[in-house]
């Protein structure tokens, strides 16, 4: 029996779902082994008999809480995929402004989305079995997850920081050059794509275990960043993580 999969989207840009569809070469082969029964971006059927639910997006409205809980009841395994579901994503930024104060600047009016609430991660609302991190997710990581599922192997996420991948490619370090980068405290798996293109790692894959945030702050302050600037860098993706800045 092919495992039945549902893909669901909450507050997000839906770019992570698109990453699944970007597996153009692999999907036709994969579809011999799994079945999508609910995947709004890819099909119009809306099956309710999924056993595995992939959740994209963070929870930012009252109504989304109930929707998510319903999915959780039906799914045997629930996976948060993408930075929004995993960490709250960039949506978490609104939590640092008075509730609703951003409505006029974002939507030009205040009567939309009246049930808006502070951003929650998926795990703040329902139990999560697994996370596929990233903004957007790495499609290969999704593939490995599905393969692990089929082979009955618990997929492993890299437990080392982005610097390992970055240095392995022989990149020049942005922090060495006096700039900022969060790669040293961020979970690898993206092949250090941002620093490889000379952009700072913004931490979209979340922190590694026991991240030495304090040491990195000291380093970034020596590079001329203020405490507030550093806090803002961390907040972009990791504002809901329990760190003290």
């Amino acid at each position: 029996m092919k495992p039945k999969i549902g893909v669901f989207s909450f507050t997000s840009c839906e770019g992570c779902q698109l990453q699944i569809l970007n597996l153009e070469d692999e999907l036709p082969i994969l579809l011999g082994q799994i079945e999508f029964v609910n995947f709004r971006e890819a099909m119009s059927e809306k099956g309710e008999d999924y056993e595995i639910a992939f959740i994209e997006g963070s929870i930012t409205r009252e109504s989304e809480i109930e929707e998510l809980k319903k999915i959780r009841e039906k799914a045997r395994i629930l996976i948060a995929f993408g930075a929004c579901a995993h960490l709250g994503g960039v949506n978490n930024l609104k939590n640092f402004h008075p509730q609703g104060s951003w409505l006029p600047s974002v939507y030009g009016r205040t009567d939309l989305f009246s049930d808006t609430i502070p951003t929650k991660r998926v795990k703040d609302v329902v139990p999560v079995e697994f996370v596929i991190p990233g903004c957007p997710i790495d499609k290969k990581e999704f593939l490995r997850f599905i393969q692990g599922l089929l082979l009955n192997i618990q997929p492993r996420l890299p437990d080392f920081p982005v610097c390992v991948e970055c240095r392995s490619k022989g990149n020049i370090c942005l922090v060495e050059e006096g700039k900022w980068c969060l790669g040293s405290v961020t979970r690898a798996g993206c092949d250090a794509i941002c620093p490889t293109y000379r952009e700072a790692c913004a931490g979209c894959r979340g922190f590694v275990e026991e991240a030495n945030i304090e040491s990195l702050c000291n380093i970034l302050m020596q590079n001329g960043l203020s405490k507030e600037e550093i806090r803002d860098k961390f907040r972009l993706f990791n504002g809901l993580e329990p760190i003290d800045l």
């Binding site: 080392f160 240095r167 990195l216």
Partner: peptide
Amino acid sequence: KCLSCGACII
């Protein structure tokens, strides 16, 4: 001070 970033061993 160490971030356990692994740069040195790579």
